[in-house]
Design a protein around this nucleic acid. Sequence first.
DNA 1: GGTTTTAGTTCGTATTACCAATTATAATAG
DNA 2: CTATTATAATTGGTAATACGAACTAAAACC
Lengths: 134, 134
Amino acid sequence: MAPSADAEDLDRFVETSFAIIAQVTRVGAEYDLSLTAVRMLGILRDRVLKMAELAEYLGLERSTISGLVDRAERRGLVVRETHASDGRSTRVRLTSDGQAQVARATADLATRITPIIENSGLAPKSSGHSSAID
Amino acid sequence: MAPSADAEDLDRFVETSFAIIAQVTRVGAEYDLSLTAVRMLGILRDRVLKMAELAEYLGLERSTISGLVDRAERRGLVVRETHASDGRSTRVRLTSDGQAQVARATADLATRITPIIENSGLAPKSSGHSSAID
DNA sequence: GGTTTTAGTTCGTATTACCAATTATAATAG
DNA sequence: CTATTATAATTGGTAATACGAACTAAAACC
């Protein structure tokens, strides 16, 4: 089950990952979004999450998420919605504008990432299929 | 040549990359090093570079590198060496302490990354071989 | 010698991130 | 049913990260 990777493969995989993140960062920069902001918007593509859940997904402190959402909200990319039955809880949702930007950015990304994969020494494992970007 | 990736593969690759970077970030945090600091030290593993070259490798401004190297130098991980024949040029080199930390961190990383690769839907392309982590 | 390039640094500002403390709401105990 | 405890998120303080513009110092060019 799955030909496991040796030390060189690991190095190559880390290297390729850095290259990809560099591209994500670059595309993000074109939209004036940080890597973290891009990650957050990517996660919110198909979900509505509470602040604490976002923190969990991103591996960051709740206080960091507050600022992150503040800035995204100020730009109209996301909105905060107060939970009906629990007044403490806030849920974050992409606006339609946010959705549009994420869609465009994702398309840009695909273009940039393809050549990296082709030169990575890594290949998709035939067709397993089970997408989602988070 | 090389079975090229479809849209789902791209998504999966981006997702896996984020997962890996999250692990690199986590291991870095254990050594109190940022993702960028880890990248820098990784690059310097087998090289001595000028400030401007480091900026190039990392895709950052020279002014950012100044601060980054400042902090790493303050901790004894790297040293600045003035070029003999060109008084403007500074070269950055890992100290032996820096080398030791990078070696340890790299080993830690391998442990954490292996399972991600196994579940990534991606596989090393047989044996091409040509390592290096930068 | 004087101007122009090149290499790095410094300064001001915004973002990112952490931790500790705080506010507001909910749940639980007595 | 108030009083305590727990949970959700925010605020404030600090450090690191990153940028661009302005600056210093050392070459290179003419």
